[in-house]
Amino acid sequence: MSNSLAVQTLLDETQYLVSPPKVYMKLKAALEDPSTDFGDLAQLISTDVSIAARLLKVANSAMFNFPGQVSSIDRALSLIGTQQTVDLILATEVLKSISGIKSDIFSVEEFSKHSLGCAISARVLAQYKGEHDIEAHFVNGLLHDTGRLLLFVKYPDAQKALLETNKNESAPLRALETQQYGISHEEIGAALFRSWGLPEALVECTAYHHTPMSSEHHSFSAAIVHVADWITHAIPMGGNGENFVPALDESAWLSLGIPESSLEMIMTEINKQYNSALSLLL
């Protein structure tokens, strides 16, 4: 109980830093309303010019490789799919609010790159596995470390000390944080997303991205984020403060059934999409 109290206090004090994705919330409600048509959705998206612009940039990136220019929201919706577009909008909204954060002790840019790298990796892995809704995996990867972001902003001095210990004594940053605060960055992120009413799969992927097999209903999606995070640290793409590549969970890796011989090909595709998305999203 004291844990959930501590999480609530932390959320109350840091919520203002990352705002709930308003356009996404409206779109989600619209999707659930049977009277909503295509034009209504396009209209809603167009009300936020910066989000509409970001969506078009993503639609024109190497993530999709559509022939020709995608120049309207209508066209993006029909090419990408409505649910997938709404997922991408969640991603662009939260990424926008993250990149507005200022910090002296960690690089927001590096953190954003880590988030984007994990998002692209999760998307490529999901695509490799023949998943339909690959944009949902993109969102899961993008937001997995939001809890740590709140820790950096709320406890800059303590986090600075933990970063030093992580570097000098080689203990995983995640373990040091849990020791220091009594809660993990995974639990904090999950609590935030639950309080926003975001999809349960996202909540579980955030909660279990280091221990995916503990996820009750979404262990496959959590395993995707886990392996994506591992690849993101290994290459590396950006950084989230952790100085070492987190341990790969053997059961999680095996559960995806990806042959080791495919790893290089998957990483090559990730690298290509990441380099393209980098200039577009950040």
């Binding site: 690849i231 290994a234 070492f244 590549v245 790969l248 053997e250 890796w253 080791e260 790893l263 990483m267």
Partner: peptide, 18 residues
């Protein structure tokens, strides 16, 4: 960098090779 990873895991060996 990979000190927290199990060295005998095939995926870890492959990743270090790549």
């Amino acid at each position: 960098r990979f000190r927290h990873n199990t060295p005998s895991l095939l995926a870890v060996i492959e990743m270090k090779k790549i």
